[in-house]
């Protein structure tokens, strides 16, 4: 464990909690892409199946359970409890255009051709594009609530910190996982546009306007 990975995990946890609390307290999921949240639930489910097969540490296991629990709770709030506030018209990204290519890529490019490894690879590739429906929705509505931008900032920051973690681990431990690094780069690049707007428009206006 190193400082980049720890702050990355905490940033990821913060994002997940921020979103869950925002929906719960405002009793509304307006402006939130339910499709992205479903993709994240799939990402955690396919990646953390090893909860059933191996124990790494209390931290590892508890964080995985928290991530999975919050992901499904968020999906439940969006599609069941506050479904009346779900903005389905703007959440129109065709996720099959993500899931099918990612699934094919996971079968073609992986570290070894076993079910667990392919599911893990699928999860890594899917996570890198899972935020697209959310970013697409914001570009369609043209704005996002401030709290949503904080959620996206923490979520984007987490994988950027993981990139630093992989540099650290390569230098100190000789650890190298090109699949995770490649997907992490793609994931972080997708946020760059948002990062720029978040920093330049930070604090100026209540409703952050996002240029399409």
């Amino acid at each position: 464990m190193n400082v980049f990975r720890l702050t990355g995990d905490l940033s990821h946890l913060a994002a997940i909690i921020i979103l869950l609390l925002k929906i719960w307290k405002s009793r509304s999921c307006a402006g939130i892409s339910g499709k992205s949240q479903i993709l994240f639930a799939v990402v955690f489910t396919t990646r953390y199946l090893d909860l059933l097969t191996s124990f790494i540490s209390l931290y590892n296991t508890s964080m995985k359970l928290i991530y999975i629990g919050c992901a499904y709770a968020t999906v439940y709030l969006i599609y069941v409890k506050f479904r009346a506030t779900y903005d389905g018209n703007h959440d129109s990204f065709r996720v099959e255009f993500l899931v099918v290519p990612v699934g094919g890529l996971a079968v073609l490019i992986n570290h070894n051709f076993s079910l667990m490894e392919i599911l893990w690879t699928f999860s890594i590739y899917l996570e890198s594009v899972a935020i697209l429906p959310q970013l697409f929705m914001i570009s369609k509505t043209g704005e996002a609530e401030t709290i949503t931008t904080h959620y996206l900032f923490c979520l984007g920051l987490y994988r950027a910190l993981y990139l630093l973690n992989w540099i650290w681990r390569y230098y100190f431990e000789g650890f190298l996982d090109m699949i995770a690094i490649f997907a992490g780069l793609v994931q972080t690049v997708l946020y760059c546009d948002f990062f720029y707007l978040y920093v330049t428009k930070g604090g100026k206006d209540r409703k952050k306007v996002m240029l399409p």
């Binding site: 790494i56 893990w120 973690n165």
Partner: peptide, 10 residues
């Protein structure tokens, strides 16, 4: 191969 180390990351 290095990549096959145990998957200890989240």
């Amino acid at each position: 191969k290095k990549a096959n180390q145990t998957k200890d990351e989240l």
